[in-house]
Simulated scan of single mutants.
Amino acid sequence: MDENQITIVDENGNEHLCDIITTFESDRFGNKMYVVYSPIGEYDEDGDPIYDAAIVEPDEDDEEGGRLAPIENEEEWEMVQELFNTLMDEEEL
Rank of each mutant, 00 (worst) to 15 (best):
T7P: 04
I20E: 07
H16M: 06
E63L: 15
S38L: 05
G30C: 11
P58C: 09
M88N: 08
G41R: 13
E45M: 09
I71W: 03
L93S: 14
H16P: 02
G41S: 13
G41D: 15
N85A: 08
P49W: 04
P49C: 09
Y51G: 03
D89V: 04
G65V: 12
E72D: 15
G30E: 05
N12A: 11
I20Y: 05
F84H: 14
L83Q: 10
P70K: 12
E78L: 04
T7S: 14
W77A: 05
E42W: 04
P49G: 07
G13Y: 04
D59A: 15
N85L: 10
G66W: 06
R28W: 00
M1S: 15
E75C: 10
E45A: 12
V35T: 08
E78P: 00
D89E: 14
E74P: 03
Q81N: 08
D62Q: 11
N85W: 10
C18M: 01
D46E: 09
D61Y: 08
H16E: 08
P49M: 10
Y37F: 15
N85V: 07
L87K: 02
V35C: 05
P70T: 11
E64N: 14
E15R: 09
E90C: 12
G30N: 03
D62C: 14
N4M: 09
D44Q: 06
D61T: 05
P49D: 11
V35H: 00
S26Q: 04
E63C: 14
E42Y: 09
D10A: 05
G65Y: 10
E74L: 12
D44P: 05
D19C: 01
F24G: 03
E78T: 10
D10F: 03
D89M: 11
G41L: 08
E25A: 09
Y37K: 01
E15N: 11
G41V: 03
G47C: 04
Y37N: 02
I6E: 05
E90M: 14
E78N: 08
E91V: 01
Y37A: 07
D62F: 15
E78Q: 12
L68M: 15
N85Q: 15
S38P: 01
R28Q: 06
L17E: 04
